[in-house]
């Protein structure tokens, strides 16, 4: 496991205390290797988003540690200090809520570009436009504010913002759940391309279709703990745990898979 880029060891997160304490994540360990995509699936309330936030350095675990390189990211003070902050980026679930409604797509990305790379104003604008262009956002759309963009476009702006830091790992929390089918395909193609360029992706989703398509390893989460993990293909073809079986049986359109592929 020496080639693991990021590794979580026996992470526990508890919200609240006493009798009302909720153990959101219980003793979870996972690792992400360079250039691979892993999936975390589970139902709402299973703790998958909390786990994503732990990996992104946004939620300090009560127990356990997260190693990035060989160093624990949660030491004193802020998580991911110095340059490491840049290397792990997150794309949030809600494309409506995670963009500032008052500034344009271009400014949103330019702000991040400027923050991470000490560029001049014109330089950061140029870089941002380039980045947005790669995400399929035209110069005309870049001048729009979030409310004028479609859900898929907004999500691509979020991805552009995350990529502006040139991260090594992208943590995406349900990036496709709020967008249309065709926009979803565009976003997934984008992720596929990024994987090809050597980025690692941790994809949190309850959409098993997306997980099956994009990831090579998957962790199945229930009530804060992993119930099954393994190569995505194997888990989908031969699920072991009862919960995983139930999940896979619930995928709509599954009966078509044999005929269509």
């Amino acid at each position: 496991m020496s080639d693991a880029l990021i590794e979580a060891r026996q992470v526990c997160v508890t919200f609240g205390s006493g009798s009302r304490a909720v153990r959101a994540v219980r003793d979870v360990s996972l690792h992400i290797n360079a250039g691979e995509a892993i999936g975390i699936v589970g139902e709402s309330g299973s703790g998958k988003s909390t786990l994503a936030r732990v990996l992104a350095g946004l939620q300090r675990p009560d127990q356990g540690e997260v190693l990035f390189g060989d160093e624990s990211i949660y030491q004193r003070g802020r998580a991911y200090r110095g340059d490491k902050r840049r290397l792990v980026q997150m794309v949030f679930q809600d494309p409506y809520g995670s963009l500032n409604p008052r500034i344009t797509a271009l400014s949103t990305v330019a702000e991040a570009v400027k923050f991470h790379g000490e560029h001049s104003r014109s330089e950061s604008h140029r870089l941002s436009l380039e980045l947005l262009g790669q995400m399929g956002i035209s110069e005309r759309d870049a001048a729009k504010k979030p409310r004028q963009l479609s859900g898929g476009q907004r999500q691509r702006v979020s991805v552009a913002r995350a990529l502006s830091a040139h991260p090594e790992i992208l943590i995406a929390d349900e990036p496709t759940s709020a967008i249309d089918q065709s926009a979803q395909a565009q976003l997934l193609n984008l992720f596929q391309g990024l994987l090809g360029d050597g980025l690692s992706i941790a994809l949190v989703s309850h959409d098993l279709g997306v997980i099956r398509y994009l990831t090579n390893r998957v962790y199945v989460m229930k009530d804060g703990a992993f119930v099954e993990s393994g190569l995505t293909q194997e888990v989908f073809e031969n699920p072991q745990h009862a919960y995983t079986k139930q999940l896979i049986a619930s995928i709509p359109g599954r009966h078509l898979q044999g005929a269509g592929a």
Partner: peptide
């Protein structure tokens, strides 16, 4: 054609 559950993992999805 754009349906993800029919796509082969790792290939480009067909988009509209």
């Amino acid at each position: 054609r754009a349906r993800i559950e029919l796509a082969t993992p790792g290939t480009q999805l067909i988009t509209i």
